[in-house]
Design a protein around this nucleic acid. Sequence first.
RNA 1: GGGCGAUUAGCUCAGUUGGUUAGAGCACCAGCUCGACAAGCUGGGGGUCAUAGGUUCGAGUCCUAUAUCGCCCACCA
Length: 909
Amino acid sequence: IWAWKEQYEKRILGQLRDLGASCDWDRTRFTLDDRCATAVREAFLRLFQKGLVRRGKRLVNWDTFLQTAVSDDEVFHEQVKGHFWHIRYEVIDPQPGEPTSVTVATTRPETLLGDTAVAVHPSPALALDAAAAALREKRAAAAAKEQPEIDAAIDDLAARRRDLLPHLETLAAMAKAGRHVRLPLLGRAIPLVADEWAKPEMGSGCVKITPAHDPNDYDVGRRRGLPMLNILNPEGTLNAEAGPYQGLTIRKAREKVVADLETAGQLQQVEDRLIELAHSDRSKTPIEPYLADQWFIRMDELAQPALDAVAQGRIRIVPERYAKSYLDWLSEKRDWPVSRQLWWGHRIPIWHVAGVSEADLAKSFAGRDTVAWRSDEAGGWFVCSSEESLGTESVAGQPLVRDPDVLDTWFSSALWPHSTLGWPAATAELETFYPTAALVTSRDILTLWVARMVIMGVFDTGEIPFHEVYIHPKILDRYGETMSKSKGNGVDPVDVIDSLGADALRFALAGMATETQDVRMPVDFQCPACGHLVEQTVQNRVKPRIDCPKCGKPFRTQWANAAADLDLPRGPAVSEKFEAGRNFSNKLWNATRFVLMNLEGSTPGPLAAMGEVSSLPLEDQWLLSRLASVTRNATRAIADYKFAELARELYAFAWDDYCSAYLELCKARLAEPAHRERAQAMLLLGLDTILRLLHPIMPFVTEEIWQHLHAAAGGRRMPWDDPSSPLAESLMVARWPVPPEAWIDQATETRFGTFLAVVSAIREIRARQNVPPKTRVTAAVRASAETAALLEPMRAAIESMAVADLAALGPTASAPPSAATASAAGCEVFVDLAGLVDVAAEIARLLKENEKTEGFLTAKRQKLANESFVSRAPEAVIAKERAQLAELEDKLSKGRAALDDLRRRQAPA
RNA sequence: GGGCGAUUAGCUCAGUUGGUUAGAGCACCAGCUCGACAAGCUGGGGGUCAUAGGUUCGAGUCCUAUAUCGCCCACCA
């Protein structure tokens, strides 16, 4: 929304400026009256009444075309051709041996009308030495070809030291003695001051000081207690301070000042040079630094409770490291400038009235606690009120004139937690929902927004506004830059929703929400004609239309505005990042189709009565164990704001465990009437649980599936559902799963892992021997008696999943005469390929495999031979290493035997 | 100038209190349309964990320095 608003604003203002229009803010400004306006006025009045609102001065970036201050991020710098004017200021009553004038150089000669001092460095010799030392250091570190340039600079400094230093020393002494110079053209006497801002290594070593129109000069002015003269009117003409130049525009004034200096003989030199000039992003007009009266909120008292809330842990910031920047920033207790010169916003509820006494005010507003006032220290009064209609009143015949400024957008935002609940009225919502639970936001507004919400929440209600603050990562573009309105590198989420779905978007975003990392998201434009992906680059990302490099047809982008562009088909900005989410939705949908298809003819009821877990088949015990541990991990991930972990855990469980393993196993069971019912129940249990766990990050597809399940299996109950009430109408209000911890069994998961490894080993042999998928093979598994015993019940499953007949399973199982081998989880797997086997390929693979095993074995032996490892490492670690060593030795000997076997077989051929 | 963070596969990212052979998705290679799913299935290749030191039996993980990048703040940290 922000980006769009900016685009419109820029376009409109740019066109106005091109037409030579001027801007009258009093007519364009309007006040915002939303449900928060009352809260804003009330909160401001309370601050005013407590003496926490003050009037003060501030140097702002002034846009003379818009007649408004712009914030730092609305400023861009551009090199322009300009001049450097060297101007002579005469010294008043020079003593013998003193110079009669000083020379300063400026790119903005008209600002001399606002000069209130000329500065020289207090100790020029030291400053020159420091500069020379810095250059020598730089020379030592610099590459050879840069050195001549640095040498020249060092020589220049030496020359300055010789020729200019005595002069500068004299000036520094004069500054300390309180001498003055005469301001050209206006004739005012201004002091010569000593300040480090004047650089002896640059120019004449002297610098003019215009505190009201230059940030550095403003600092000097504050340090030296200089007067600050604003010589500009808001629209960029000179004001009465400029004397004879009053009423001229800056440009005209500059021409006239230069001409007059020339006439007066005070212009010594004019240099051409390129100048880095700040421009307003909104109007493209050069920025004028401008000293303006602003409203401030005093922070000294207000900040402390907000500081304490985080320091004492009543507000928890996640990730924790951000608490530091919050505390550091608040502890400065810097006053908050709240007035803004914008064309929309909440208008400051302060009116000004002059020519009345305090008694008049007291009489006019007698008995009204909605009005407060304070002297403006110039004979008038500032009146603050929570009543919007105050401006229609008058005091002793004098009008109340409202302050033209609006409040900083963060002022109303600071009230958000309580104003949206109805404050200042004591509503039921406020009572029920305040303080809120968690605030989720981006780290760059931690101070701007979060800290101020805490401050204002505590000030207005006496309570902190929330207990936890979650700072989420930011998405960057392919170059690692923050997506921003001015760069135009944003992605419209609606494009993603249109092409891949809202769940794909949300799932992918959750997957990106890791604790530390900001995420790069390369984006492409998708050609609507041919589907070709056009990489979004710095060049094309701000264009309203792009010609597809493949099919040549043009399409429009999100920036299209002209009628001709708007007629083109839209080329959405897409990213493959979201495809995994779309594919996952699809996978869930298809798995559901399988379950529904196999539920036909059954009417599932409560699933609680499944009997002793230990009496269930291995795969069912395994599913329950996985279900319980995944649920536990997912629940914890949500509580800890670890959304990426949540997404990964559920993706892996649903796809690999539920679909690839369990669902495949069920195909055989569903075909047998004796096992069908239990398989149906277990499939439902798994799917239902997955839906509930996924719902927070994939709300739409899970709800849709839930509704379908309602039709087919509305009578089902999970063990954690209330058996006496009907199943939840919507997934949104269904109970979060709470499987018993007792379901979790590590031994079961390990055993099931062995089974999967055996299946995988047979499949691997098939793949590398290019056995067609439907061709049945004969396999044998040599395993310890213990392993064989637990694999025996899975025999049918192995056979169906690996498309194999298991000829032998046990410690004595032997390799068929012509076999390919593989090892899996301590078992040896043989596949009889009778004549089909590619012996040469098998030998090559075994050689490679054995070599790899030997490598590990050598490393392992060395480790265990290392005296310091064996004596210092924990017992468990050493035992583990020994077990691995034994396993590797076993694997190698089997590998070598298989190799010998194959070589013998190959020899006769 | 101050502070915070990052650097791991071609790309985008995980990696728990230091302990098996560092993982995922996409991309890549080979083979597959079997009644859930080609947006899929099965298998595979691919990494000196930015660089240099240090601590440790053991470092992607801890410490120091360097380089590069990002962000916030800047008269006051």
